[in-house]
Amino acid sequence: MSNTDMSTVDPDSIGFGRIAATLPVQDMARALRFYCGTLGFTKIFENGDPVGFVILKRDGAELHLTLQKTHKPANFPVAHLMVQDANRLATLCEANGLRIVKGVRDKEYGLRAFVFEDTEGNRIDVGQPL
């Protein structure tokens, strides 16, 4: 299909499905201990030997982890997670020694929000509807 043909495609005809964040991790076992052990996600798929890719699910959230031995964390949030209780998640993160980058605050756009770094240094922006 040429570039001119693409302009005639109606995006409503595509039928989008789910989209999930993929987080790079240097240590898959450590990341799984956090996301599955601490946060209660369930591993629904894994690939590789050693495991280099997993899909995790909890409630309406889906998260993909990919093994990247040379991963250098970004200095900005790489995923946004909606929860029912931001205060409880912040407390859980702190109790597990995670860095809280921005503390829990009620925002003018209608969310109680905070940012934490997971065990791999990935920054996760958390929001709770007010």
Rank of each mutant, 00 (worst) to 15 (best):
Y35L: 07
A95K: 09
A61S: 15
A29C: 01
A86T: 05
G127R: 08
P77G: 04
L81E: 09
K102M: 09
L130A: 13
M1H: 13
T70M: 13
F16K: 04
A74G: 05
A31H: 10
P129W: 01
D12L: 02
R58C: 13
A86I: 10
F53Q: 08
T42H: 15
I124H: 03
Y35P: 10
T4P: 00
G15T: 07
L39W: 03
L56D: 06
H71Q: 01
T8G: 06
T38F: 11
H80M: 10
R33Y: 12
F76Y: 13
K69M: 09
I100P: 07
L89M: 01
A74N: 11
R123C: 04
I19N: 06
D125T: 00
G48Y: 08
V126K: 14
P50R: 09
L32G: 13
H64T: 11
G37P: 14
Q26W: 03
S13F: 05
T91D: 11
D118F: 01
M6H: 07
E46V: 04
F116L: 11
L65T: 11
L98C: 15
E117Y: 13
N122H: 10
E120N: 08
L23P: 06
M28Q: 10
A113T: 02
D106E: 01
E108H: 08
V25S: 12
R33C: 06
Q128I: 02
C93E: 05
V126Q: 08
M6G: 00
M28T: 09
Q84V: 14
D27I: 11
N47T: 04
E117Q: 12
M1Y: 12
Q128N: 03
G17K: 07
F45E: 07
D12I: 04
K107S: 15
K57G: 01
N87L: 07
L63A: 02
V115Y: 00
A61K: 00
L111E: 06
T91E: 12
T70H: 08
F76S: 04
P129E: 09
L23Q: 05
A20L: 12
T119A: 15
F114Y: 01
A29F: 03
Y109H: 13
L23A: 13
G127K: 08
R88N: 11
Q26V: 14
K69C: 02
M82H: 07
I124R: 01
G97R: 09
L92A: 02
T66R: 06
M1D: 11
R123H: 05
I19L: 09
A113I: 01
L39I: 04
G48F: 05
H71V: 00
D12A: 12
G15P: 02
G52F: 13
E120P: 00
Y109R: 09
I124Y: 01
L130E: 04
Q68A: 14
R112W: 01
Q68H: 08
E120C: 07
Q26N: 15
D106P: 00
L32T: 09
D10K: 07
L89S: 03
N47P: 00
G103I: 04
R58M: 13
F34Y: 01
A21S: 14
L63S: 04
F45Q: 03
